[in-house]
């Protein structure tokens, strides 16, 4: 792939993000290729040493906010004609509720997932708190009730162990949630750019 092919392909794959961002990205990679060539690399070598177009698209997308993408996608390229405004306004009774439903579904899914994590955290704390009965166990022991004292202490230790496991699970799960959210956001963003052909390399 030569420089022109590389930049054209990159531009094509980025279409959908604001033009200013595309131009800046193209300028950045063009400058890099030229700098590498000036240092003695051939055009092909310089391009091969760069990350794949897929990687570049991913990195660029993660830097553009969703509202910006939505605006770019739906902002009319020309001013609307009167009849178009009438059509949009008169069908609003249909598409506004639809949009609200869609947004609420996404939001409730998100909240639902997180409340699972929060519930888990809460049970961690309550199970952990239950292990405080160890105090009762020790008191029992001191007062000479060996059997019930040891039983209570054992129970408290079991609670503590369970709390530790639950805590670990909560931590892992919330970490997973963060990763998942990032992936979903990237996926939503990728919906806004055109599907390009796969990289040939």
């Amino acid at each position: 792939m030569n420089k022109q092919e590389f930049l054209t392909e990159l531009k094509k794959r980025l279409s959908g993000i604001p033009k200013k961002d595309i131009d800046q990205t193209i300028e950045f990679y063009e400058e890099l290729i030229l700098d590498k060539m000036e240092e003695g690399q051939t055009e092909e070598e310089a391009i091969a040493s760069l990350d794949s177009i897929d990687e570049i698209v991913k990195a660029t997308l993660s830097n553009v906010s969703i509202p910006k993408l939505v605006k770019e996608k739906f902002a009319p390229k020309r001013s609307l004609k009167t009849w178009e405004i009438v059509v949009i306004a008169s069908t609003a009774i249909i598409w506004i509720p639809l949009a609200i439903v869609l947004l609420s579904v996404i939001l409730s899914l998100y909240v639902g997932l997180w409340s699972g994590v929060i519930a888990l955290a809460a049970s961690t704390i309550s199970v952990g708190a239950s292990s405080l009965i160890i105090v009762g166990g020790i008191l029992d022991l001191c007062m000479g009730h060996a059997a019930s004292g040891i039983f209570t202490i054992g129970l408290a230790l079991a609670f503590l162990g369970t709390a530790l496991l639950l805590g670990l699970l909560t931590f892992k799960l919330s970490k997973l949630m963060v990763v998942l959210c990032k992936k979903i956001i990237l996926w939503i963003k990728s919906l806004f750019i055109k599907r390009g052909e796969k990289d040939e390399n």
């Binding site: 950045f28 890099l32 760069l50 570049i56 991913k58 990195a59 660029t60 993660s62 830097n63």
Partner: peptide
């Protein structure tokens, strides 16, 4: 890598 540097510079 270049694709790492670019978002950093923008940020």
């Amino acid at each position: 890598s270049e694709s790492t540097l670019y978002p950093i510079l923008r940020r």
